[in-house]
């Protein structure tokens, strides 16, 4: 079995858990995972521990998707997760500009620990006060578009949109 480890990180309430769930639901014949008592391990609303789902898309191939908890006090988990990741997604809620500096911190941390393919996914684009992706890029310090990683708008509740984001990420891996 060939397994790729993906990390989904991002700001508070950006939609990391939702993104991971949507991705795992793409599974061809998804085994019913949600009666295994995961709820106790991985609480539903805000993620205190790690999110973890698998997506097996071939008999011999699967991705394991890990979601980081977003509160700063859990940042030691980032290191554990990023150390073994093959690629990662940074999710940012477009309607919470006050969190952008935090996103920048995550970005710096990840870049220091691993030079791996990544994309930035902008969520909550449909919400009141959402910033446009290009403005968010500037807020993250990307003043020069050649150095910036792909930035995509994503609706984490929509499987097709999550698939699009993952395709962009995989293209970075080739």
């Amino acid at each position: 079995m060939e397994i790729m480890n993906l990390v989904v990180t991002g700001t508070l309430g950006a939609g990391k858990s939702t993104f991971i769930l949507s991705a795992s639901e793409m599974q061809v014949a998804a085994p019913d995972k949600h009666n295994t008592g995961d709820e106790a391990f991985f609480p539903q609303d805000t993620t205190a521990s790690i999110d973890f789902e698998t997506l097996q898309f071939d008999e011999e191939m699967a991705i394991h998707i890990y979601g980081t908890p977003s509160q700063v006090r859990f940042d030691f988990m980032w290191e554990i997760l990023i150390e073994r990741a093959h690629a990662y997604v940074l999710l940012i809620a477009a309607h919470r500009p006050s969190e952008f500096h935090y996103a920048r911190r995550i970005l710096n941390f990840m870049n220091q620990h691993a030079q791996i393919p990544m994309i930035i996914g902008i969520t909550h684009n449909d919400c009141e006060g959402a910033w446009r992706p290009e403005d968010i890029a500037l807020a993250l310090g990307y003043h020069n578009s050649t150095k910036q990683p792909p930035i995509v708008a994503v609706n984490t509740q929509d499987r097709a949109s999550v698939a699009m984001a993952l395709i962009t990420l995989m293209e970075q891996c080739l």
Binding site: E2, M4, M26, F57, D58, M61, I63, R159, A160, A163, M164, L166, I167, M170, E171, C173, L174
Partner: peptide, 13 residues
């Protein structure tokens, strides 16, 4: 692996 995954994801769209 990556190509296969991309193929799979494209079906999901």
């Amino acid at each position: 692996f990556v190509s296969k995954l991309i193929g799979f994801l494209k079906q999901q769209k």
